[in-house]
């Protein structure tokens, strides 16, 4: 099977609900999570905090336009996309 991240067309979105006190804290938690997973090009697309916590969607761009996409390579079998 192909390496999963190599088959991501552009970005990986993670959506969850953090129990926390503010939107700012929720955003920080999401960025921290994505970085802990090894992603470098990360952002929070959306966050909405109400009393119990934050509904938050983070994004890690695996590829941006003009990068060299591994899903487009001519042949299979190269290293992972996180590097």
């Amino acid at each position: 099977m192909a390496k999963p991240l190599e088959q991501v067309m552009d970005a990986l979105d993670i959506e969850t609900f953090f129990v926390c006190a503010s939107e700012e804290e929720g955003r920080a938690l999401m960025l921290s999570l994505l970085k802990a997973w090894g992603f470098k090009d990360v952002d929070v697309v959306f966050a909405q905090h109400e009393g119990p916590g934050v509904r938050v969607r983070g994004r890690a761009y695996v590829y941006r336009p003009a990068d060299k996409y591994r899903w487009l390579r001519a042949e299979a079998g190269q290293e992972g996309a996180l590097s």
């Binding site: 067309m9 970005a11 979105d13 090009d41 952002d43 697309v45 959306f46 994004r59 761009y61 336009p65």
Partner: peptide, 13 residues
């Protein structure tokens, strides 16, 4: 659904 997101390119999902 990325219309209002300005932090990066539109994603395919």
């Amino acid at each position: 659904t990325d219309e209002a997101y300005s932090g990066g390119p539109i994603s395919v999902p």
